[in-house]
Design a protein around this nucleic acid. Structure first.
Lengths: 219, 219
DNA sequence: GTCTATAGTACGATAGAC
DNA sequence: GTCTATCGTACTATAGAC
């Protein structure tokens, strides 16, 4: 049996991910953790502070791992740009592995990405910003033909897919009538890298030097 | 001044989108609508019924428009498969236009896609399922090399990008330090179609025969 | 450090006047 | 059809016993 603080963090992580930020009550957390309501106030003060603590516990190691992977990629590439798939792998795989470890954290990550509760989005953006900057430079080197604005958009799309896949994957099972298994994280990761890699590397809309014809007529 | 029922629906749409489903209280809705608390109970009974009514009001016309666009695409294509970009346009443009009309509905759509509140996701999946089936067949015809499972995954990714772009676009402005403007819906739509088009058309991971998919300049 | 007990507030829902 | 008034409940946060 772990200490109270850890039990609260574990229970909060799971319930926040399962129910959403606003719908998860402190009482539900303490009940699930088997501790008393007052313990949350002692260890974390408010609900917002608890959410932030749950978030920080996983995110800092996660981002450290991402940057370590990125460093390894760049060392491997030497003077050349890092291959696109390697960059995507460095960013995505650490998150996927966390989920595989049985934590609900990555689903929570997806929630904080979307749900406007308290200042969660600001916390999220602040923590992610640092990693985004580092990866942005690496992606820019690999895809020098993309203007920075375009690259930001596409990285945003990439993170959006990751967040939704991990936060709302169960919808996929439902819509595909069981054909797709969103719990297959390995398969999801491969598909995500394939899809986002193609999207990131797509020619810039409006330029002519792509092999593909421009956009067909709209009505 | 519109009637009470419409005022409630309008206020609820905006507040649900702004605050999230769980964090939006009926009292906040009635206060914003300038009507009495009891009116919600009279017109909609429960909060869940109100959410469903907000949702149904826009989604049915939206999906009808999507299917009409799809019909037009297929008529234009004749015996051939509909070009990929046209399919994406038929699916995405009606939603983008709704947002342009000043409604907050598409942000709400993004919320319901992600936030696990009451049975919102079930409602969402049920309403969307019909359109997905129709579009699935059309996409399958345009991309016959993709196994159904693969195509479902990629359509899921595509919808994920759309939902997140419209629900959490403000994050993009923040992370890009103002470089990207997520309110530019026209630009977002073009970029989304470009990105998702390349992702959908990417070769299946593990196979060697790449088709026309536009991987521009990855190393 | 953990618990009990509770203050204070906001909520969803509804009954009943008009 | 709209409003007032209110019931019962659940919540966050905290004070104080142990």
């Amino acid at each position: 049996m772990q200490d109270t603080k850890t039990r609260i963090l574990d229970a909060a992580e799971r319930l926040l991910a399962d129910r959403g930020l606003a719908a998860c009550s402190i009482r539900a957390v303490t009940a699930a953790a088997g501790v008393n309501l007052g313990a949350v106030n002692y260890h974390f003060r408010t609900k917002q502070d608890l959410i932030q603590a749950v978030f920080a516990r996983r995110l800092k190691p996660l981002n450290r791992e991402r940057l370590a992977e990125l460093d390894a990629c760049e060392a491997r590439a030497g003077d050349r740009a890092v291959p696109l798939e390697d960059l995507l792998h460095a960013f995505l795989a650490p998150a996927m592995n966390l989920e595989r470890d049985g934590t609900a954290f990555v689903r929570l990550l997806g929630r904080m990405y979307t749900e406007p509760y308290l200042d969660s989005q600001r916390i999220f953006a602040a923590e992610l910003g640092e990693v985004v900057q580092r990866f942005f430079r690496a992606f820019h080197r690999t895809l020098p033909q993309l203007p920075p604005e375009e690259l930001f958009w596409r990285l945003f799309f990439t993170v959006a897919i990751m967040a939704q896949t991990l936060a709302a994957g169960s919808l996929l099972r439902h819509i595909s009538k069981g054909l797709c298994n969103p719990s297959d994280l390995q398969g999801a990761q491969i598909r995500l890298i394939q899809f986002a890699g193609a999207g990131l590397g797509a020619p810039v809309a409006g330029t002519r030097k792509s092999r593909k014809a421009g956009k067909g007529g709209s009505s």
